[in-house]
Amino acid sequence: MVTIRLFAAYAELVGCDTVDIAVSAGATIGELLSEFRRQVPAAAPLPSRLLCAVNLAHVLPSHVLQPGDEVAILPPLAGG
């Protein structure tokens, strides 16, 4: 089970700021996102390409998850 943190527009859209997704060990971020879309119908309007972070750093969809990772899906950044 992986807990995904959601922020700002995406938290509002999905209606919560964390979601738990069941994935098999060794899954990639890309696979986690596919499961997220399958298991959370409210995520359907999210764009096809999503910015993700693991353990407070940006990662690519090919990133392989480790037990205990902190995963986040980030809406388009708008600092400054």
Binding site: F7, A9, H58, P75, P76, L77, G79, G80
Partner: peptide, 22 residues
Amino acid sequence: KRRVPIWKREHYADGGLDWVDP
């Protein structure tokens, strides 16, 4: 602007409210 996870929501004079997507 490219990398730091910060978001902003604008409150408009016409009453609208939007998340900003640069």
